[in-house]
């Protein structure tokens, strides 16, 4: 059997993380192709339901990238994201999903290298964790 290849959805804010991902490209840095970016204007646009939906639809990992604290283009959107992600992680555990499958990272427009490192590291981490198996409807959590 071929090695398990994780599917990762990356929500990236327009001003920092998506720009950081662009810089990684401009600098021709290589990383694993398991993630696809959905660009949103600010990380605070990411609704917990988007993340849950991604897991439901087969994502093995979800990563949200925003500007560093204090640097959000919209003043404090990333603090809102931080609070929401904290809550959401609790919720994920209740759903039987390892909360570490969701990650929040601060990656600035200047941090192409960090984007690459985060993507590689997270992909490896999820690969080790294995495919996400959601508990059957109504069944008990798989207890990942």
């Amino acid at each position: 059997m071929a090695e398990f290849e994780p599917k990762i959805v990356c929500f990236a804010c327009n001003w920092c993380t998506s720009a950081g991902a662009d810089l990684a490209g401009t600098s021709r840095m290589e990383y694993q192709p398991n993630s696809v970016i959905i660009r949103v204007m600010c990380s605070s646009r990411v609704d917990p339901q988007h993340v849950l939906w991604a897991f439901k639809k087969g994502a093995d990992g979800v990563i949200i990238g925003g500007c560093h604290p204090g640097d959000c283009h919209y003043q404090d959107g990333n603090y809102k994201t931080l609070r929401r992600v904290k809550l959401l992680k609790k919720l994920l555990a209740d759903f039987g999903i390892n909360p570490d499958r969701l990650r929040l990272e601060w990656i600035s427009a200047a941090e192409g290298k960090k984007f690459v490192n985060v993507m590689n590291e997270f992909t490896d981490f999820i690969r080790k964790l294995g495919q996400l198996k959601l508990p059957e409807n109504g069944g008990p959590p798989s207890g990942e």
């Binding site: 991902a21 662009d22 490209g25 401009t26 290589e30 192709p33 970016i37």
Partner: peptide
């Protein structure tokens, strides 16, 4: 659809 910076420039396969 950003297939250069976020795809062709960062992958080799």
């Amino acid at each position: 659809a950003n297939i250069r910076e976020q795809c062709s420039w960062v992958h080799k396969d």
